[in-house]
Design a protein around this nucleic acid. Structure first.
Lengths: 347, 347
DNA sequence: CGTTAGCACTCTCTCGTGCAGAGTGCTAAC
DNA sequence: GTTAGCACTCTGCACGAGAGAGTGCTAACG
């Protein structure tokens, strides 16, 4: 995966082993881990006193921290990062999980518009965290068809269908009272003229004969552009319950999580850092751009077809989360979604 | 509003006053209320001892209950019910709130598909609870237009647009390899044939000439029917944070709320009891059909145009919630949504 | 006869205390 | 370099005392 901050400090073999154990133990139990528990639970060749010395070194180097003078140690953000980049090993979902997920997707194959939601819930389940999935969006939307439906004398519903199978409906105010029959005539002729064109091309090539026609053309370009805009991208999330159960988000913290998810503000926070096409990217604690995410770990990836259609997906959890599970899940889901897009659009 | 269970027991004027105060005080503070607090905080003409006697009577009659031998009293479900039906007064949103809400809706007028979501968030806000809003659905969907888009040799995307401006997209497996050109030809002729017809009418009148045509016609009827089915109705909710902050749902209870909201299982629980067209309906505690709702109060209403298009909306909160606020909010939102539907469809 | 003052009682909540458990740093010995 | 031992610190939990709030009952009052 993406190495965000290469860790250049040299640790001894034993220090790395201890750091690894501390991370794993803390992720598993949620309680600070001390030298004694380590020697008791794992067969390390050395005594607790030695571990203590090593831990003190690790703390000095910024990989571990103590919350209280005598309460065991927990990893710092830096410690997690080192673990993820150097110690964790290659995350790969078990083939059992892979098969199960693929199987589930086979079953909902017929409802394209439910894929995003479904992906979110599967991802939340397998990663054991909150998941976020954006709908795939095409870089350039091209007109396939549109309908104009008269609602009131000066109000109509415009339904756009693009080549890329996206659908959008929007209400448009009309400059003058117009009958359905006239709207239909106009739509018929304009559909023929605009078919297969992008917003830019329509703007250049298609000039409406009447005021009404010009207005509709303008609305169409607005609608097509809107389909590409980040703001309109549909975002689904799932699995809040996974995070709410955890002790670190018992009371007020729950609020901040919900605030993050609402209105997709999370996406806009993370998006700037995401580079398309690369592998899974991990942001741990203070690596995150916004303060609100300071206590979280974020694992994100993009999916889609190179240069044509892209979406993002990922999970959000406490910094104390199983990065292995999250990364492997996100990576697999991104591959799966990319495959699905490929199947759909590469004809 | 709908009187679910007429309360026939006669209470004295003073008992009713006391019950009203207990409910209001408990709703406001969340702590059991005792006789002394009542005399201290409100100017009742009698002493705490008298209140105690009356409270004992109210407890005997099943309107109040004690959690612990000496910890003040809280209303029973029956107490809440009596309060809502007899003591509360007519709930009507302040005209300031009304204007504010209407104003907000003016601003999003152009995104029909966002109304439901928007209504949910406004309702959650004004009622201070979790809100649920279903998309309006028409009783009988009539075909306006459809598109067939070839994705793979034997897989196509079917996009349905109904007279009622609903849009649905679904993937269909084709019985044989088919080119886009052929699909377009087929769609053109079938659109002309099916325009304005319901699923039933299409089934009766339209007979496809080829196997492919017959298959497409069948899928169209399935799609049209699906638009009416309760299961596919889009449900939006909002405002979980309102309920999560409250003490009664601190830890594990939060889970049950989330479970309820997920997958719309809440709707199917409440729906059977809802009768369309009537005013706001209130279900308090044990009036609810499912055990999961036993600790909640539910305030629901239907909206729409008589016999043509209907949806439901409502709020969900702890039994200790402000019924006045919830009922007035739900009632107003139902009226507002009905007006909006009227504006849209009655042309 | 309804109302009220007074009293004994109960229960919760909070705060301090004390103690077990876990962990640490340091020193001295191996 | 590693380990055993020790004194020390801090958390968490149980326990008990006391304040606060509320109750039911009884006896007195108009």
């Amino acid at each position: 995966m993406e190495i965000n901050q290469p860790e250049s400090v040299a640790l001894t073999q034993r220090q790395r082993a201890i750091l690894k154990l501390v991370v794993q133990e803390y992720v598993a139990t949620g309680r600070p881990v001390g030298s004694k528990t380590l020697t008791e639970r794992y067969a390390i060749g050395v005594s607790s006193a030695t571990i203590r010395n090593e831990m003190a070194d690790l703390e000095g180097a910024g990989f571990l921290q103590q919350q209280h003078t005598s309460g065991g140690r927990i990893p710092t953000d830096r410690g997690y990062r080192y673990y993820v980049h150097r110690l964790m090993g290659a995350p790969e979902l078990s083939s059992g999980d892979q098969i199960m997920i693929r199987h589930q997707f086979r079953q909902v194959e017929f409802q394209l518009d439910q894929w995003v939601e479904f992906a979110a819930s599967v991802l939340a389940e397998t990663a054991g965290n909150v998941s976020i999935v954006s709908a795939p969006r095409t870089l350039v939307a091209r007109m396939r068809h549109f309908e104009l439906i008269a609602l009131q004398p000066r109000l109509a519903l415009l339904i756009l269908v693009t080549q890329e199978t996206a659908v959008r409906q929007m209400m448009v105010h009309l400059p003058e009272d117009t009958e359905q029959a006239e709207l239909s005539r106009l739509a018929d002729s304009l559909v023929a003229e605009t078919r297969g064109l992008s917003a830019d091309e329509i703007e250049r090539q298609v000039i409406g004969a009447t005021e009404l026609a010009r207005y509709v053309v303008e609305q169409i370009t607005v609608g097509l552009r809107g389909l590409n805009s980040v703001e309109r991208t549909q975002i689904r999330h799932s699995g809040i319950e996974n995070i709410l159960g955890q002790p670190e988000f018992a009371g007020e913290e729950a609020q901040s999580v919900l605030d993050l998810l609402r209105g997709g503000s999370l996406l806009s926070a993370v998006l700037p850092q995401l580079s398309a096409g690369t592998d899974v990217q991990v942001f741990i604690g203070d690596e995150n751009p916004t303060d609100a995410l300071r206590r979280f770990g974020v694992v994100m990836a993009t999916y889609g077809i190179n240069g044509e259609v892209t979406g993002i997906l990922g999970v959000l959890g406490p910094t104390r989360m199983s990065y292995w599970r999250s990364i492997s899940s996100v990576r697999y889901m991104a591959r799966l979604m990319s495959d699905l897009m490929e199947d759909l659009y590469s004809s």
